[in-house]
Amino acid sequence: MAPAGTLDRTISDAENTEELPGRTVRTEGQPPVEDVSVNGAYDGIGSVHAFLEEVYRQSSLDGTGLGLLATVHYGQRYDNAFWDGTQMVFGDGDGEIFTGFTPSVSVIAHELAHGLMQYSSDLLYEGQSGALNESFSDVLGALVDQYAQGQTAEQASWLIGSEIFGEGVQADGLRSMAAPGTAYDDPRLGRDPQPAHMDDYVETQADYGGVHLNSGIPNKAFHLAAMALGGHSWERAGQVWFDVVTGETLPRDADFAGFAEATVLAAGERFDEAVATAIRDAWEQVGVLAARS
């Protein structure tokens, strides 16, 4: 393991097989190669590492300089990117709907956030705790993207994966944190099914209890909190979410209400009552916490 504070990337090429990790093609400090997917993975992972270290003073995903591994060109026309418990894996997409996942910093940060979650709260990947797991990944994806571009909450698109779609696909992104349920509406993809309020919470046995669907509710709560607080989202709202996830008090089976209360408490402890109130108001607006009389 690399010493704390050291960035240590290794990018491999699966050469369109599903054998991991594949052939090593670029390691830390080596110059760019001809393969744009390799360079995109290398640079995107570097952006996530820089964000964690510069903003939250955390070295890599585990806080102690964990080496960051990634494999590109996984499978044939593979329409996904994922964290497999030890490394990042990127497919190339089908070339029509998805054109590749390495150009999107928000996608890379989203998947690496699953690794960060694994080394911290490790929320169970089912039901509301699973939706919170997915939502935190979107939060980190948005924050890293905004940090890399120097954007405020008001300037940001709040889209996850806006760069991965082929020409003519009617999609702004994979998800919209500002307006869950509006990210895409395409004959091939269908219509974005995410709810933005507990009134529309999806009860399903599919997708581990709808973890990719119901994550729209805490996503919207974070967006509302960040917009209410203004400025850079990572400074207050993001710091609070990071504190909760990397703290040692959140139960693995936390539900939306429990997580919401934890963020309100963490906001008061780190900042002040005004920040705590803004965050509580955000959770009330999406129906997770009851409105105060």
Score class of each variant (00 low, 15 high):
residue 2 A to E: 11
residue 24 T to I: 14
residue 28 E to V: 13
residue 34 E to Q: 06
residue 36 V to A: 11
residue 37 S to Y: 15
residue 38 V to H: 01
residue 38 V to S: 01
residue 38 V to G: 00
residue 39 N to L: 02
residue 45 I to A: 02
residue 63 G to A: 10
residue 65 G to Q: 03
residue 65 G to Y: 02
residue 65 G to H: 03
residue 68 L to H: 10
residue 76 Q to S: 04
residue 76 Q to K: 04
residue 77 R to M: 10
residue 86 T to C: 14
residue 89 V to W: 03
residue 98 F to P: 05
residue 107 V to S: 03
residue 108 I to F: 05
residue 109 A to K: 07
residue 112 L to E: 05
residue 115 G to R: 04
residue 118 Q to L: 07
residue 119 Y to F: 12
residue 120 S to K: 12
residue 123 L to F: 02
residue 135 S to D: 15
residue 135 S to P: 15
residue 138 D to W: 13
residue 142 A to M: 14
residue 152 T to I: 12
residue 154 E to Q: 13
residue 154 E to L: 11
residue 159 L to N: 09
residue 170 Q to R: 13
residue 176 S to Q: 04
residue 179 A to L: 05
residue 180 P to K: 01
residue 181 G to I: 00
residue 183 A to N: 04
residue 195 P to R: 01
residue 199 D to W: 00
residue 201 Y to T: 08
residue 204 T to M: 04
residue 207 D to R: 01
residue 209 G to E: 01
residue 211 V to P: 06
residue 211 V to Y: 05
residue 213 L to N: 10
residue 216 G to H: 04
residue 219 N to S: 11
residue 227 M to W: 08
residue 235 E to T: 14
residue 237 A to D: 09
residue 240 V to R: 07
residue 242 F to A: 08
residue 243 D to C: 14
residue 244 V to C: 10
residue 254 A to C: 05
residue 255 D to L: 00
residue 257 A to M: 07
residue 258 G to E: 07
residue 260 A to I: 07
residue 265 L to Y: 06
residue 266 A to W: 09
residue 268 G to Q: 15
residue 269 E to L: 15
residue 272 D to H: 00
residue 277 T to S: 12
residue 282 A to C: 07
residue 282 A to K: 03
residue 284 E to N: 09
residue 286 V to K: 00
